[in-house]
């Protein structure tokens, strides 16, 4: 038994155990913390299957941003309130059993007939020179399957908008003024973020990195700023925020449509591909960062939508009295 296998086994086992522990927590606050740990272990397992891009994204978005969002949301609903209705035992056991059987079948099938994917690795390599990037993952994301990525950016935009719809007139408690230590931390970390974010974008052309990771980092900066002494993003005009939110999607879509003149939707001419990809990555980083920040603010109840917005029922025409 090689050490690698031992490690993998332990990792897989702890993933399952952590998942069960997460599910068995009594309060949402505890569950979120467990979930974040689970996300970190998951990132580790991505690393084990040689997918550093995914590991980075998982750590940044799956664990970091998601955890932050959930914690921010819990600010509004309460950390320590226990989950409303625990599932009764007669349901829990069959569900557990069913999941176990499904997992068993899945692992049996996979173990029995797994072969190294006959996939597209070769093809991907073969056409790399035409893509304008040296990182195969970036090539897949922004070149071969750019259409998927375009729609993914759309998903993020739409998610941010959904958070907007959720944030009603009821706003959360205002943020307390941070202490001197936090201010000091901000002063040091802000430049670091500003350094790392562009680096991440730029490195995506060659190595793990790119818009999603950079955007997640940017949203970290956003969250810090919101917590900090001058939460200036909150004072931005709504219109500016909206422009920022849509920037990546707009630019991506416009670039894609611009390529119609070259005969293909999203088909960059090979000699300009690098520039286009960089441009799109930058715009998407900004938008991803902004939309995740907006979600953070929205989940925490800090998005002050117009208080005049009434829910649907009140906006309806008043009922006419029946004779």
């Amino acid at each position: 038994m090689s050490p690698g296998l031992v490690f993998d086994t332990v990792l897989a086992f702890s993933l399952v155990v952590l998942a069960v522990i997460t599910l068995r927590q009594r309060t949402p606050g505890e569950a979120v913390v467990q979930l974040m740990i689970f996300g970190l272990l998951l990132a580790l397992s991505w690393l084990r299957v040689d997918a550093p891009d995914l590991a980075l994204t998982e750590a940044a978005i799956g664990s970091g941003v998601t955890g932050a969002l959930l914690l921010a949301a819990l600010r509004r609903t309460g950390f320590g309130k226990p989950f409303p209705a625990p599932v009764s035992a007669w349901l829990r056991y069959p569900v557990t059993l069913g999941c176990a059987v499904l997992g068993l079948i899945l692992s049996l099938v996979v173990m029995q007939s797994w072969h190294h994917p006959a996939g597209l690795t070769e093809l991907t390599r073969q056409y790399m020179p035409e893509t304008g990037t040296e990182n195969p993952v970036t090539a897949v994301i922004l070149n071969y399957r750019a259409y998927d990525t375009l729609l993914e950016i759309g998903v993020l935009l739409v998610a941010a908008l959904s958070v907007y719809t959720l944030s009603g007139p009821a706003s959360g408690t205002p943020v307390k003024p941070p202490g001197p230590i936090f201010r000091f931390y901000m002063r040091i970390m802000t430049p670091v973020f500003w350094l790392v974010v562009p680096y991440m974008v730029w490195v995506g052309g060659r190595a793990p990195g790119g818009a999603f990771q950079a955007g997640a980092l940017l949203s970290g900066l956003g969250a810090l700023t919101l917590l900090g002494p001058s939460p200036w993003p909150m004072r931005l005009r709504r219109r500016v925020v909206r422009w920022g939110l849509t920037l990546g999607f707009t630019l991506f879509l416009a670039a894609a449509a611009w390529m119609w003149q070259h005969g293909n939707f999203l088909g960059y001419p090979p000699e300009q591909a690098k520039n286009w990809i960089l441009l799109i990555e930058i715009a998407c980083t900004l938008s991803i960062g902004i939309s995740l920040t907006v979600m953070f603010a929205g989940c925490a109840g800090w998005l002050h939508e117009d208080p005049k917005i009434a829910p649907e029922s009140a906006a309806q025409a008043p009922k006419r009295r029946h004779p």
Binding site: V95, C99, L102, I105
Partner: peptide
């Protein structure tokens, strides 16, 4: 609408998977 819905879904999935596999 609650947890039994999940169980129902699980059963259907198991049926599908079992049949196909």
């Amino acid at each position: 609408n609650g947890a039994p819905g999940g169980l129902a879904y699980l059963i259907i999935t198991l049926l599908l998977v079992g049949l196909m596999v």
